[in-house]
Design a protein around this nucleic acid. Structure first.
Lengths: 126, 126
DNA sequence: CGGAATCCCTTCGGATACTG
DNA sequence: CAGTATCCGAAGGGATTCCG
């Protein structure tokens, strides 16, 4: 009975879990959320602080987050356009779980990658 | 300074985090891991207990988990083939972070989905 | 500055059929 | 039983171009 908690994961066949996985697994979402944890940032700031992201993907990621109520988008009607993004309460609440995953990653990914590297060369028990 | 912990997420530009995200985001991995939290299971058991998964995807998912050392695969050389799968210590260690995510999902996904439903029809403040 | 639109390649993943 | 192989459509996501 030490596994009854996994019903939270398996619960409805994983539908609920997957709803969020579909959102955060898109390669950039968690990075953007983590970056916004600093506080309000402009589009350009985000573009710089999330290394490697394209304008397109940043826009799409932010739009999805806004749609889901994790991010608040504020447009200022100024001459040089200014748009600011900030996490909502729901958005902030995603940080701890994300952090749990990141902590796990820091601890285990190096070993996993070493293992992968080991298997490619000879693949045997040699 | 309440956001310095996000360095764990953003750390290396998210490379470490993404290494695990790439693994768990493939739609079935977390379900399989959660199912295996019960204990050792055979291929057929998993196929039944993970609703909707195809043989192909179950095989691929298990192979990836085995490669990364999260799952141990044991083949018995019997007349009707028998293969058992079990979580390794590393695999088990993934449960808590996954559970954190699942808990978040249970709490917030309903609201998110309601919000999505709201935006499709009129999309306005109507 | 902050996008939107288009193009296009890669990957994911479902369905099906075959095998030891 | 426990896969493997093939086909194929859908989605992810990068590069580039254009716009208010």
């Amino acid at each position: 009975m030490d596994y009854e908690h996994t019903c939270k994961i398996r619960g409805d066949g994983g539908r609920t879990l997957r709803a969020i996985l579909d959102q955060i697994c898109n390669k950039w979402t968690l990075l953007v959320v983590a970056t916004l944890d600093q506080g309000t940032l402009r589009f350009g700031d985000l573009h710089q602080q999330v290394p490697g992201i394209s304008q397109r993907m940043l826009t799409l990621t932010l739009r999805n987050l806004e749609r889901d109520g994790l991010v608040l988008r504020t447009v200022y009607a100024e001459v040089p356009p200014r748009v600011e993004y900030a996490l909502t309460a729901v958005g902030k609440s995603l940080i701890p779980p994300a952090l749990a995953l990141a902590t796990w990653a820091i601890e285990h990914v190096p070993g996993i990658e070493a293992r992968r590297a080991d298997q490619k060369p000879s693949r045997g028990t040699a």
